[in-house]
Nucleic acid binder design. Structure first.
Length: 458
DNA sequence: TCAACTCGCACCTTTGAACAGG
DNA sequence: ACCTGTTCAAAGGTGCGAGTTG
C-alpha cells in the first residue's frame, strides 16, 4: 500500500487527457473567466478528464485543487486584463475529492471523469466545501491521482499531478469580457435562455411586471438553504458525466509524482521519473511530457517558500527525515480542505454522517516548519439526505488566513509586474510551460502556499 | 467616483416521484 | 405484484442588470 517501488512503478504509467479540449482552448484563447459567487458556482467548461494506464484492480482517489497562476491581482481594462497589484492573501486551500473516490482503476478508465459538481466560491467563510478563490485572480486546476485503498491511507500514497494549461482562468464575480459571455451562453445548456435575443428583450421588458401568482408560488417553494448544502441535495445533471468521449482530447502535463513519505520512495520516484520519460511516445504533444524534475519531490517549492530560503538539496534531507519514522517531512503550512459531493460508487464511505461546520478555531498557522502542527486536511463532504459528511477521524480545522499568510503573502515573489505579458492571458507556449511544471511560475513562492495536503493530520 | 460585488430575476435543463397502463 | 413509459413539480444552474459597497 505504501509507496514502495512497485507502487511508484504502477503509478508511473498513468496518463490523463482533457476532455473537451477544443472547448477549453476556445475559452483559453479569449481568456477564460470563471464566475465565482458566494453560494458557489460550477465551472464552465467543467473539468473532465480521461485516464489511462491505471492498474484496473487497484484503487485510486482523484482530487482537484486550484492554484494561483501568479501573484497578481488583475483588473479588466476595456478589452484586456491588466495587473492591478499584488494578489490578496490566499483563501483557505481546498481540494475537491471526486465523489467516486476511491474506485478501482477500471472504473476511472472506463469513462471520462467529470468534475461537474466542483463549485467555486469567493466566500472565504464558505462551509459547503466549495473551492475558495479570489475574484480578479488567475488560477488553474490541478488534478491529482492517488493510488489508495481508502481515503485514510492517502497519506501513504504516491500523488501524481496533472495540469492542462488551457484550463487556466480568471476568477470573476461578473463577466468582464463579453466574448467570454457569448461563448459561455453559446455552449452552456443552462444559459440557453440567453441565446435568443428576442427572449432576452422580452425578459427585460417583463422584469418590472412580476407575475403575482408566480411570486406567490416562488415564495412558497423557495426555502432557505438547508444546512446540508443545496448543491449536494441532488445530482440533476449526472448525465453529463456519462457521455462517451467524443471530443478531441489533450493529454495533461504530469506535473508531479512524489511520495510524501520515506526516502526510499523518493529515490524510486526519482529513478522512475528518469526512466519513464523514454516511454513517452515520440510525437506526443507537450502536454504529456513527463516532468523531469529533481528527485526531491515536486513539492519542494512549498518548503522553499515556507523557509524562505535554501531551495537546495537540503530539502532532500528534510524529506527523508520523515522516512522511517512514518511522519511526513513536508512542512505544509496551509489548511487544506477536501470537498466532495455525494458518492456514487465509492466503496468506502466516510463514517461521519453529516457535513461538519468548519470550526473557526484552529491553531494559528505560525507553526510553519513545525512538524507537529502544520495544518489539516479538511474533508468537507456533504451528502444531504444521505449519509454524507465529514470523514470522522479527520480534523476540521479552518483558518481562512493563517498568520503568516496575512503578513507575508506573496512575499519573496520575485516576479515583477513587468513580466506580465501584454496579452492578458496565460502564455500558450506550452512547451515552455512544460519545462516549468506547466506554468510560468518562476516564482515558486506562490506554489509553496498551495500544498495539496497537510499530512500531519492524516 | 467607480470598480467590484451582491441580489433577485426569468428562463432553462434535469431529476425523480407519482401515476397509468400493460 | 412487477415492469415500463409518461407527466410534471421541484431543484438548481445560467447570465443580466439594478442596486450596494468600499
Amino acid at each position: 500500500m505504501a509507496g514502495g517501488p512497485d507502487h511508484f512503478h504502477q503509478g508511473s504509467n498513468i496518463k490523463m487527457t482533457l476532455e473537451d479540449s477544443d472547448l477549453w482552448k476556445s475559452f483559453h484563447g479569449i481568456g477564460t473567466e470563471m464566475i465565482i459567487t458566494k453560494p458557489g458556482r460550477r465551472m464552465f467548461p467543467h473539468c473532465k478528464v480521461n485516464l489511462f494506464g491505471m492498474v484496473p484492480y487497484a484503487k485510486y482517489i482523484l482530487l482537484v485543487d486550484m492554484v494561483p497562476v501568479d501573484s497578481f491581482r488583475y483588473k479588466w481594462n476595456k478589452d484586456k486584463w491588466d495587473v492591478a497589484g499584488k494578489a490578496e492573501p490566499q483563501p483557505p486551500c481546498r481540494t475537491y475529492l471526486h465523489p467516486d473516490s476511491p474506485a478501482p482503476g477500471s472504473h476511472w478508465m472506463k469513462q471520462p471523469i467529470s468534475f461537474l459538481k466542483l463549485k467555486l466560491t469567493n466566500n472565504t467563510l464558505d462551509q459547503h466545501g466549495h473551492i475558495i478563490l479570489h475574484s480578479m485572480h488567475q488560477y488553474h486546476p490541478r488534478f491529482h491521482i492517488v493510488q489508495s485503498d481508502d481515503l485514510y491511507s492517502v497519506r501513504w500514497s504516491v500523488f501524481q499531478t496533472f495540469t492542462f494549461p488551457e484550463t487556466a482562468f480568471t476568477a470573476v464575480t461578473a463577466y468582464q469580457n463579453t466574448k467570454i459571455t457569448k461563448l459561455k451562453i453559446d455552449h452552456n445548456p443552462f444559459a440557453k435562455g440567453f441565446r435568443d435575443e428576442g427572449t432576452n428583450t422580452k425578459r427585460r421588458a417583463n422584469r418590472s411586471q412580476v407575475d403575482p401568482e408566480r411570486m406567490v408560488k416562488r415564495m412558497n417553494t423557495v426555502k432557505p438553504e438547508p444546512a446540508g448544502s443545496p448543491d449536494f441535495n441532488r445530482s440533476p445533471y449526472e448525465s453529463y458525466e456519462g457521455e462517451p468521449p467524443k471530443r478531441k482530447e489533450v493529454e495533461g502535463v504530469k506535473e508531479e509524482q512524489y511520495s510524501p513519505w520515506p526516502l526510499a520512495d523518493r529515490e524510486n520516484s526519482h529513478s522512475i521519473r528518469t526512466s519513464e520519460s523514454p516511454l513517452e511516445p515520440e510525437g506526443r504533444d507537450i502536454y504529456n511530457a513527463e516532468q523531469l524534475v529533481p528527485g526531491q519531490a515536486s513539492y519542494q517549492p512549498y518548503r522553499f517558500h515556507e523557509y524562505g530560503k535554501s531551495p537546495s538539496p537540503a530539502n532532500s534531507s528534510m524529506v527523508s527525515s520523515g522516512g522511517s519514522s512514518g511522519r511526513p517531512s513536508y512542512e505544509l503550512s496551509r489548511v487544506s480542505d477536501v470537498a466532495t459531493v455525494p458518492e456514487t460508487t465509492a466503496t468506502h464511505k466516510p463514517p461521519a454522517p453529516e457535513m461538519a461546520p468548519l470550526p473557526a478555531s484552529c491553531p494559528p498557522q505560525t507553526a510553519v516548519g513545525h512538524q507537529d502542527y502544520t495544518g489539516a486536511l479538511n474533508m468537507a463532504m456533504a451528502q444531504p439526505g444521505k449519509s454524507g459528511g465529514v470523514l470522522g477521524h479527520h480534523h476540521h480545522l479552518y483558518a481562512p488566513y493563517g498568520t503568516e499568510q496575512a503578513l507575508g503573502q506573496w512575499s519573496g515573489v520575485g516576479t515583477a509586474a513587468s513580466q506580465y505579458p501584454g496579452h492578458p492571458h496565460l502564455p500558450t507556449d506550452y512547451s515552455t510551460q512544460a519545462v516549468h511544471h506547466g506554468y510560468p511560475h518562476g516564482n515558486v513562492g506562490e506554489w509553496s502556499q498551495y500544498p495539496l495536503f497537510s499530512y500531519s493530520c492524516w
